[in-house]
Design a protein around this nucleic acid. Structure first.
Length: 365
RNA sequence: GGAGUUGUCUAGGCCG
């Protein structure tokens, strides 16, 4: 933004592309107010915002969980005579699907056709994914048929979505058939395709298949990602093999897959499960040293583990650190914290945590 | 002519 202001100072006129870039960047960082200010600046200025401007802001609002603001922005778009495009609809359809409102999402699909706004592969993939998650298999399949009829070809993301959906329903063999199918259709599987399968095999305790899928992935020249390793580390941790998990942590770094918040959280959970609370705590230190920020899930894992392990005092310290570092947990997380303190026979801590909720103006449920 | 917006994989606790 400073560079941006300098640019204006020195007589350079920013165009809509610059504004869009800034707005989407601000949205990524959750700075919706600043982004909205830029939109106003654009509306009041001489170069008009376009669909991409609104799309970026609508998406930013939805990602931040602020649906009202997203809809207001959408209305503003319509009022200002800017026509929603396929991306606008895709963004809204994705949001509706994630809210479980697949009927409304389907209505938007109809609206698109009426407005000569052609649904694309994103539209259908998003919708089918939402329908699968809602358990509406028939409609998912008829939507797929419709997609094909409209001449819209599935891409690697569409196949990945199908493969993962099948895996999650325990239909791994059907998923494997689709793996062959996509290749036959000239669509090469990517890292996520294999990740979905490997994870599913691990869940199903079919270790041999998981490892052979991993080998196949490498053979095909597909590199494992951080998510691949996270899945493997999680499987080792569930099995109590935390030392092996640490070896994988080394290996992944060597292969350019950098551990992320999930990697460390998985390890922390594994260490508690294996009764190694000290290692769990030093993993927190290690992750911070490596520039990886703990999030609410990380803290909840630690706090729960410490409470169950009879160390509620340290847990309470972490509650403070968490609130300072990543903000307030929501009501459900507070509930489980309180539960943890009771489990550790520390009613006093449970009550003081409860008091915090009330003081924060957050309603206990 | 170029640039900016949307979909798929992996972690924890409480309650159902």
């Amino acid at each position: 933004l400073f560079t941006f202001r300098d640019m204006i100072q020195s007589g350079c006129t920013p165009d809509v592309v610059i504004y869009n870039t800034l707005i989407s960047g601000l949205c990524c960082n959750g700075k919706l107010d600043k982004a909205a200010e830029l939109l106003d600046e654009l509306i009041n200025g001489e170069c008009a915002p376009n669909a991409r401007t609104y799309n970026a802001l609508i998406h930013g609002c939805l990602k931040a969980g602020n649906a009202d603001r997203a809809l207001t922005t959408y209305q503003q778009m319509l009022d200002n005579g800017c026509n929603p495009d396929t991306v606008t609809y895709n963004t809204l359809i994705d949001w509706l699907c994630k809210e479980g409102k697949t009927d409304e999402a389907l209505r938007l699909l109809e609206e698109m056709s009426g407005r000569r706004c052609d649904p694309d592969t994103y539209t259908y993939t998003t919708l089918i994914h939402g329908l699968f998650k809602a358990g509406k298999h028939d409609i998912a399949l008829s939507t797929f048929t419709r997609m094909m009829k409209m001449g819209c070809n599935p891409d690697v993301v569409t196949y990945n979505m199908f493969i993962d959906s099948l895996c999650k329903e325990g239909k791994i063999d059907k998923a494997l058939e689709l793996l062959e199918g996509m290749t036959a259709m000239g669509c090469d599987p990517d890292t996520r395709t294999y990740n979905a399968l490997i994870h599913s095999f691990l869940q199903a305790a079919r270790t041999d298949m998981a490892l052979s899928t991993f080998a196949r992935m490498m053979e095909k020249g597909c590199s494992p990602s951080t998510a691949t390793y996270n899945g493997l580390i999680g499987w080792l941790c569930k099995d109590g093999k935390t030392d092996k998990a640490l070896e994988l942590l080394q290996e992944m770094t060597g292969r350019g897959c950098y551990p992320d918040t999930r990697t460390y959280t998985t390890l922390i959970h594994g260490f508690f499960k294996a009764g190694r609370a000290d290692m769990a705590r030093s993993t927190l230190t290690r992750m911070k040293e490596n520039g990886c920020s703990p999030n609410l899930v990380t803290y909840c894992t630690l706090i729960d583990g410490l409470c169950k392990g009879g160390k509620p005092d340290i847990a309470l310290e972490l509650v403070e650190e968490m609130i300072r570092g990543v903000g307030d947990p929501d009501i459900r997380m507070y509930t489980s914290l309180i539960d943890g303190f009771f489990q550790a026979d520390r009613a006093d801590m449970a009550l003081s945590t409860f008091k915090r909720i009330v003081d924060k103006g957050c309603n206990p449920d």
